[in-house]
């Protein structure tokens, strides 16, 4: 199974309203929201309607509903908002469908040093390495999420989600010492692992894009 992120177009700045609409959708298609992470699209809102606190409340309300938010869809107003909320900026839907952003696009100046995290990432926690690679020295629990604009290296078990190349870098890869993931993604290409493939369970794995397809192979 492979998805792109679902885009949630936010028309009203009021979190309660957005959640109500989502719940209604969820009743119509329960499986959808459970599995695919959401990308928030704030473009229907006027610049002055974008209220950071309201968006923060929306994010925490979504988290309470167990809905993962992957990032903001790139648009004119969103760059600063994304930075202030520490969320990844995702290519616009059309851009994601066409060519993935090339590595040349990341200029050396705004690429940050590798983000290093020691210890276990627990259920409900999210770690995002903006414009950087991410190294986790520890395990990632079910219900936890690690995201990087670059590649991700996990020295431990991955039981939750890992999303590399979150802003569209197709060359990003994920290395996992012990594979039990719920979901992995590279540059917006997702795999929801409802059932773990027997040959990969507990193995050391590399995930990457090959011809726009997510491939997962054991390390040798």
């Amino acid at each position: 199974m492979q998805f792109g992120a679902l885009a949630l177009r936010v028309h009203a700045p009021d979190p309660e309203e957005v959640i109500a609409v989502l719940k209604q959708r969820q009743r119509q298609a329960p499986a959808l929201l459970e599995q695919a992470p959401l990308a928030l699209d704030l473009s229907p809102l006027e610049a002055e309607e974008i209220d950071l606190d309201a968006i923060r409340r929306l994010l925490s309300a979504l988290q309470d509903e167990n809905i993962a938010v992957l990032g903001l869809i790139d648009g004119s107003e969103q760059k600063t908002v994304a930075k202030q909320l520490d969320l990844p900026l995702l290519g616009s839907a059309s851009e994601r469908r066409s060519a993935l952003r090339s590595p040349e696009k990341r200029s050396a100046s705004d690429w940050a040093p590798t983000r290093l995290v020691d210890g276990q990432v627990r259920s409900g926690q999210q770690i995002y390495a903006r414009q950087a690679d991410l190294v986790i020295y520890g395990s990632i629990s079910a219900g936890a999420e690690v995201i990087a604009d670059g590649s991700i290296h996990i020295y431990g078990a991955l039981r939750g989600r890992a999303l590399a190349g979150a802003s569209g870098l197709g060359e990003a890869r994920i290395f996992i010492q012990e594979f039990h993931a719920e979901l992995i993604s590279v540059a917006g290409h997702y795999k929801v692992l409802e059932e773990l493939p027997e040959n990969l369970r507990g193995q050391a794995i590399q995930a990457r894009l090959e011809n726009d397809q997510l491939s997962m192979v054991t390390l040798r």
Binding site: V121, R122, S123, G124, Q125, S141, A142, G143, A144
Partner: peptide, 13 residues
Amino acid sequence: VRDSDRVLGIMAS
């Protein structure tokens, strides 16, 4: 176990 993991995460932050 899942809920305990969540609580441990909250305690850590």
